[in-house]
Design a protein around this nucleic acid. Structure first.
Lengths: 115, 115
DNA sequence: TCGATATTCAACCGCATGGTTGAACATGCA
DNA sequence: TGCATGTTCAACCATGCGGTTGAATATCGA
Protein backbone atom coordinates (compact mmCIF):
# COMPACT_ATOMS: atom_id res chain seq x y z
CA UNK A 1 0.00 0.00 0.00
CA UNK A 2 1.85 3.06 -1.23
CA UNK A 3 -0.30 5.89 0.02
CA UNK A 4 1.38 9.24 -0.66
CA UNK A 5 2.33 10.98 2.58
CA UNK A 6 1.49 14.60 3.30
CA UNK A 7 3.16 17.52 1.63
CA UNK A 8 5.38 18.17 4.64
CA UNK A 9 7.13 14.84 4.23
CA UNK A 10 7.21 15.01 0.45
CA UNK A 11 8.78 18.45 0.20
CA UNK A 12 11.17 17.68 3.05
CA UNK A 13 12.28 14.55 1.24
CA UNK A 14 12.83 16.53 -1.96
CA UNK A 15 14.90 19.15 -0.14
CA UNK A 16 18.02 16.99 -0.04
CA UNK A 17 20.23 16.82 -3.16
CA UNK A 18 21.29 13.24 -2.46
CA UNK A 19 17.66 12.15 -2.32
CA UNK A 20 16.77 14.05 -5.50
CA UNK A 21 19.66 12.37 -7.24
CA UNK A 22 18.47 8.99 -6.02
CA UNK A 23 15.03 9.69 -7.44
CA UNK A 24 16.56 10.54 -10.79
CA UNK A 25 18.54 7.32 -10.73
CA UNK A 26 15.36 5.38 -10.04
CA UNK A 27 13.76 7.06 -13.01
CA UNK A 28 15.79 4.80 -15.25
CA UNK A 29 15.22 1.56 -13.43
CA UNK A 30 14.49 -0.11 -10.13
CA UNK A 31 17.63 -0.57 -8.07
CA UNK A 32 18.96 -2.45 -5.07
CA UNK A 33 20.11 -0.46 -2.05
CA UNK A 34 23.78 -1.26 -2.60
CA UNK A 35 23.62 -0.15 -6.21
CA UNK A 36 21.87 3.06 -5.25
CA UNK A 37 24.66 3.76 -2.78
CA UNK A 38 27.49 3.01 -5.21
CA UNK A 39 27.92 6.45 -6.83
CA UNK A 40 27.82 8.32 -3.54
CA UNK A 41 30.76 9.04 -1.29
CA UNK A 42 28.95 8.26 1.91
CA UNK A 43 28.26 5.19 3.94
CA UNK A 44 25.72 2.59 2.97
CA UNK A 45 23.89 3.26 6.21
CA UNK A 46 23.45 6.90 5.26
CA UNK A 47 21.96 5.94 1.91
CA UNK A 48 19.74 3.44 3.65
CA UNK A 49 18.41 6.27 5.80
CA UNK A 50 17.82 8.46 2.77
CA UNK A 51 15.87 5.66 1.15
CA UNK A 52 13.81 5.30 4.32
CA UNK A 53 12.96 8.99 4.16
CA UNK A 54 11.92 8.68 0.53
CA UNK A 55 9.82 5.62 1.31
CA UNK A 56 8.21 7.35 4.29
CA UNK A 57 7.23 10.21 2.01
CA UNK A 58 5.76 7.72 -0.44
CA UNK A 59 8.17 8.78 -3.17
CA UNK A 60 9.55 5.26 -3.52
CA UNK A 61 8.51 1.78 -2.49
CA UNK A 62 10.85 -0.93 -1.30
CA UNK A 63 10.33 -4.60 -1.82
CA UNK A 64 12.60 -7.22 -0.32
CA UNK A 65 13.39 -10.19 -2.54
CA UNK A 66 15.86 -12.47 -0.84
CA UNK A 67 18.81 -10.53 0.46
CA UNK A 68 18.15 -7.67 -1.88
CA UNK A 69 15.75 -4.81 -1.26
CA UNK A 70 14.54 -3.30 -4.49
CA UNK A 71 13.69 0.37 -4.68
CA UNK A 72 11.06 1.60 -7.08
CA UNK A 73 9.98 5.10 -7.96
CA UNK A 74 6.41 5.95 -6.91
CA UNK A 75 5.23 8.87 -9.01
CA UNK A 76 2.00 9.54 -7.14
CA UNK A 77 3.58 11.30 -4.20
CA UNK A 78 5.55 13.58 -6.46
CA UNK A 79 2.40 14.37 -8.36
CA UNK A 80 0.82 15.59 -5.13
CA UNK A 81 3.63 18.09 -4.75
CA UNK A 82 3.34 19.08 -8.38
CA UNK A 83 -0.38 19.65 -8.06
CA UNK A 84 0.10 21.85 -5.01
CA UNK A 85 2.61 24.01 -6.82
CA UNK A 86 0.48 24.19 -9.94
CA UNK A 87 -2.43 25.31 -7.80
CA UNK A 88 -0.70 28.65 -7.70
CA UNK A 89 -1.50 29.08 -11.38
CA UNK A 90 1.71 30.93 -11.87
CA UNK A 91 2.39 29.94 -15.41
CA UNK A 92 2.84 32.81 -17.73
CA UNK A 93 1.77 32.60 -21.36
CA UNK A 94 5.17 31.54 -22.61
CA UNK A 95 5.46 28.61 -20.27
CA UNK A 96 1.85 27.73 -20.84
CA UNK A 97 2.46 27.53 -24.54
CA UNK A 98 5.39 25.23 -24.06
CA UNK A 99 3.48 23.07 -21.66
CA UNK A 100 0.49 22.94 -23.97
CA UNK A 101 2.75 21.71 -26.72
CA UNK A 102 4.15 19.13 -24.38
CA UNK A 103 0.66 17.99 -23.50
CA UNK A 104 -0.44 17.71 -27.09
CA UNK A 105 2.64 15.85 -28.22
CA UNK A 106 2.56 13.53 -25.27
CA UNK A 107 -1.07 12.52 -25.08
CA UNK A 108 -3.01 14.02 -27.97
CA UNK A 109 -6.13 11.93 -27.55
CA UNK A 110 -6.89 13.22 -24.06
CA UNK A 111 -7.33 16.82 -25.17
CA UNK A 112 -10.80 17.99 -26.19
CA UNK A 113 -10.96 19.48 -29.67
CA UNK A 114 -12.47 22.70 -28.40
CA UNK A 115 -15.40 23.68 -26.21
CA UNK B 1 17.27 41.23 -8.15
CA UNK B 2 15.25 38.28 -6.93
CA UNK B 3 17.32 35.36 -8.12
CA UNK B 4 15.64 32.06 -7.26
CA UNK B 5 17.74 30.06 -4.84
CA UNK B 6 18.68 26.44 -5.39
CA UNK B 7 16.24 23.58 -5.12
CA UNK B 8 17.52 22.64 -1.68
CA UNK B 9 16.34 25.92 -0.21
CA UNK B 10 13.14 26.03 -2.23
CA UNK B 11 11.94 22.56 -1.30
CA UNK B 12 13.02 23.01 2.31
CA UNK B 13 11.02 26.24 2.47
CA UNK B 14 7.98 24.47 1.03
CA UNK B 15 8.26 21.66 3.57
CA UNK B 16 6.70 23.68 6.37
CA UNK B 17 2.89 24.01 6.52
CA UNK B 18 3.02 27.49 8.03
CA UNK B 19 5.17 28.68 5.16
CA UNK B 20 2.95 27.05 2.55
CA UNK B 21 -0.04 28.76 4.11
CA UNK B 22 1.77 32.09 4.01
CA UNK B 23 2.47 31.59 0.31
CA UNK B 24 -1.20 30.93 -0.32
CA UNK B 25 -2.13 34.07 1.57
CA UNK B 26 0.28 36.06 -0.57
CA UNK B 27 -1.37 34.63 -3.65
CA UNK B 28 -4.28 36.98 -3.05
CA UNK B 29 -2.31 40.11 -2.33
CA UNK B 30 0.91 41.57 -0.99
CA UNK B 31 0.88 41.78 2.78
CA UNK B 32 2.71 43.41 5.67
CA UNK B 33 4.53 41.17 8.14
CA UNK B 34 2.08 41.90 10.96
CA UNK B 35 -0.88 41.04 8.74
CA UNK B 36 0.76 37.82 7.62
CA UNK B 37 1.23 36.87 11.27
CA UNK B 38 -2.33 37.68 12.33
CA UNK B 39 -4.05 34.36 11.57
CA UNK B 40 -1.31 32.26 13.18
CA UNK B 41 -1.09 31.30 16.81
CA UNK B 42 2.59 31.91 17.10
CA UNK B 43 4.79 34.87 17.86
CA UNK B 44 5.48 37.62 15.38
CA UNK B 45 9.17 36.79 15.61
CA UNK B 46 8.49 33.24 14.50
CA UNK B 47 6.56 34.46 11.45
CA UNK B 48 9.33 36.92 10.72
CA UNK B 49 11.75 34.00 10.65
CA UNK B 50 9.47 32.01 8.34
CA UNK B 51 9.32 34.98 6.00
CA UNK B 52 13.09 35.20 6.06
CA UNK B 53 13.29 31.56 5.03
CA UNK B 54 10.86 32.15 2.18
CA UNK B 55 12.80 35.22 1.06
CA UNK B 56 16.09 33.36 1.27
CA UNK B 57 14.64 30.69 -1.00
CA UNK B 58 13.51 33.38 -3.42
CA UNK B 59 9.86 32.44 -3.00
CA UNK B 60 8.93 35.93 -1.81
CA UNK B 61 10.50 39.35 -1.89
CA UNK B 62 10.30 41.89 0.90
CA UNK B 63 10.32 45.63 0.41
CA UNK B 64 10.39 48.07 3.28
CA UNK B 65 8.21 51.13 2.88
CA UNK B 66 8.34 53.23 6.02
CA UNK B 67 7.76 51.12 9.07
CA UNK B 68 6.03 48.45 7.07
CA UNK B 69 7.75 45.60 5.26
CA UNK B 70 5.66 44.35 2.38
CA UNK B 71 5.85 40.72 1.33
CA UNK B 72 5.28 39.76 -2.28
CA UNK B 73 5.03 36.35 -3.89
CA UNK B 74 7.84 35.58 -6.34
CA UNK B 75 6.63 32.87 -8.70
CA UNK B 76 9.96 32.16 -10.39
CA UNK B 77 11.41 30.15 -7.54
CA UNK B 78 8.33 27.99 -7.30
CA UNK B 79 8.44 27.47 -11.03
CA UNK B 80 11.96 26.11 -10.68
CA UNK B 81 10.65 23.46 -8.31
CA UNK B 82 7.72 22.75 -10.61
CA UNK B 83 10.03 22.32 -13.56
CA UNK B 84 12.21 19.89 -11.66
CA UNK B 85 9.23 17.77 -10.74
CA UNK B 86 7.80 17.92 -14.24
CA UNK B 87 11.13 16.69 -15.51
CA UNK B 88 10.03 13.32 -14.28
CA UNK B 89 7.33 13.29 -16.94
CA UNK B 90 5.06 11.31 -14.72
CA UNK B 91 1.67 12.63 -15.76
CA UNK B 92 -0.92 10.07 -16.63
CA UNK B 93 -3.94 10.76 -18.84
CA UNK B 94 -6.46 11.17 -16.05
CA UNK B 95 -4.56 13.86 -14.20
CA UNK B 96 -3.73 15.48 -17.48
CA UNK B 97 -7.40 15.89 -18.18
CA UNK B 98 -7.98 17.55 -14.86
CA UNK B 99 -5.03 19.80 -15.40
CA UNK B 100 -6.24 20.77 -18.83
CA UNK B 101 -9.56 21.81 -17.35
CA UNK B 102 -7.73 23.79 -14.70
CA UNK B 103 -5.70 25.55 -17.36
CA UNK B 104 -8.72 26.39 -19.47
CA UNK B 105 -10.71 27.75 -16.56
CA UNK B 106 -7.81 29.71 -15.20
CA UNK B 107 -6.33 31.30 -18.29
CA UNK B 108 -8.68 30.69 -21.22
CA UNK B 109 -7.28 33.38 -23.52
CA UNK B 110 -3.80 31.94 -23.57
CA UNK B 111 -4.85 28.60 -25.00
CA UNK B 112 -4.90 28.19 -28.75
CA UNK B 113 -8.31 27.23 -30.19
CA UNK B 114 -6.97 24.08 -31.73
CA UNK B 115 -4.12 23.19 -34.03
C1' DT C 1 27.74 -25.52 8.33
C1' DC C 2 30.53 -21.63 7.04
C1' DG C 3 31.65 -17.51 4.93
C1' DA C 4 30.37 -13.80 1.99
C1' DT C 5 26.86 -10.49 0.71
C1' DA C 6 22.93 -7.17 1.60
C1' DT C 7 20.83 -4.32 4.71
C1' DT C 8 19.58 -2.34 8.98
C1' DC C 9 20.17 -1.13 13.97
C1' DA C 10 22.00 1.56 17.74
C1' DA C 11 24.62 4.91 19.63
C1' DC C 12 26.75 8.94 18.94
C1' DC C 13 28.11 13.75 16.99
C1' DG C 14 27.58 18.46 15.14
C1' DC C 15 24.54 21.47 13.45
C1' DA C 16 20.12 23.40 11.75
C1' DT C 17 15.29 24.27 12.67
C1' DG C 18 11.15 26.04 14.82
C1' DG C 19 9.67 27.96 18.59
C1' DT C 20 9.85 31.11 22.85
C1' DT C 21 10.82 35.67 25.36
C1' DG C 22 12.45 40.32 26.13
C1' DA C 23 14.98 43.97 24.45
C1' DA C 24 16.35 46.87 20.61
C1' DC C 25 15.76 49.53 16.51
C1' DA C 26 13.09 52.43 13.13
C1' DT C 27 9.48 55.05 11.74
C1' DG C 28 5.06 57.67 11.97
C1' DC C 29 2.17 60.79 14.52
C1' DA C 30 0.46 64.16 18.01
C1' DT D 1 9.92 65.65 21.84
C1' DG D 2 7.68 61.59 23.21
C1' DC D 3 4.91 57.62 22.54
C1' DA D 4 2.89 53.95 19.85
C1' DT D 5 3.55 50.87 15.94
C1' DG D 6 6.13 47.52 12.99
C1' DT D 7 9.86 44.54 12.72
C1' DT D 8 13.98 42.34 13.93
C1' DC D 9 17.76 40.82 17.15
C1' DA D 10 19.78 37.90 20.60
C1' DA D 11 19.77 34.37 23.61
C1' DC D 12 17.94 30.27 24.69
C1' DC D 13 15.60 25.55 24.38
C1' DA D 14 14.06 21.10 22.52
C1' DT D 15 14.00 18.41 18.66
C1' DG D 16 15.31 16.50 14.33
C1' DC D 17 18.60 15.75 10.54
C1' DG D 18 22.55 14.06 8.06
C1' DG D 19 26.41 11.85 8.80
C1' DT D 20 29.66 8.39 11.13
C1' DT D 21 31.03 3.73 13.12
C1' DG D 22 30.54 -0.96 14.72
C1' DA D 23 27.61 -4.59 15.63
C1' DA D 24 23.51 -7.29 14.40
C1' DT D 25 20.44 -9.72 11.24
C1' DA D 26 19.19 -12.28 7.23
C1' DT D 27 19.95 -14.65 3.07
C1' DC D 28 22.65 -16.92 -0.56
C1' DG D 29 26.08 -20.22 -2.20
C1' DA D 30 29.74 -23.76 -1.69
Amino acid sequence: MKKPADLDAIFAALADPTRRQILMMLLEDDMAVTDVAAPFEMSLAAISKHLAVLAEAGLISQERRGRVKWCKLEPDAMRAASVWIQGFGLFDPLDLDAFELFLRSELPETLPESD
